[in-house]
């Protein structure tokens, strides 16, 4: 067993344990923190595979972005400190079955897929290569998906602003505040 394998199993342990804890924890804030560790573990895998760019993006998007948003929404919810109610047994069984099915599906795919070992050392992408790929308009370029995703995000952003914007007249004025 080489050092690399040990690191792999350690990362797997971190990811799996925190994933299980994220699902089973009855405190919502703790669940979010366990989710964070799961995501960090996955980022660790990318680093382990030397896909540094994807690892960094994983951390930026999931850890720095999504988890912070989740934590914020937990802060803004009522009774964030309360324990969540225990789920009904039927629901638990159903959830376990669903998890098992998807696990089986993934495993089936993995077993049926024939992994080929290549001696190609050029898998470590350079930043320039990623950039060119991202903006290429050729057949295997990603310019169109990139733009589509940008427009989707823009639409989401505008939607957020519209929802967050309150018309001027519904803002509480001085008098309302005084009456309270």
């Amino acid at each position: 067993m080489t050092g690399s394998t040990i690191i792999f199993y350690l990362l797997a342990l971190l990811t799996l344990v925190s994933a299980v804890l994220a699902v089973t924890s009855r405190q919502i804030f703790r669940a979010a923190i366990y989710l964070l560790f799961t995501l960090i573990g996955i980022a660790g895998f990318y680093f382990w595979m030397q896909y540094d760019f994807i690892a960094a993006v994983q951390i930026i998007v999931y850890v720095g972005g999504i988890t912070v948003l989740i934590i914020f929404s937990i802060f803004l919810t009522q009774q964030a400190g309360e324990l969540l109610p225990k789920q009904k047994i039927g629901r638990q069984v159903f959830a376990a079955a669903a998890v098992f099915c998807s696990f089986a599906l993934v495993m089936l795919q993995m077993i049926n897929h024939h992994f080929t070992v290549t001696a190609d050392q050029s898998t470590t992408p350079t930043i320039a290569a990623i950039g060119e790929k991202m903006l290429a308009t050729t057949e295997d370029g990603y310019a169109l998906p990139f733009e589509v995703v940008s427009i989707l995000l823009l639409a989401a952003m505008i939607g957020c602003i519209v929802i967050a914007m309150r018309p001027e007249d519904t803002l509480p004025n001085e008098q309302d505040l005084q009456q309270k």
Binding site: I40, D52, V57, I60, G64, T67, V68, I71, T124
Partner: peptide, 25 residues
Amino acid sequence: DINIGVLYVSAVSSVMVISILMAGW
């Protein structure tokens, strides 16, 4: 000498906020 050093730094430093949120909560 990671080839995405700058990106790495901005990625990892974004985890910093988690510790503050955690401490605060």
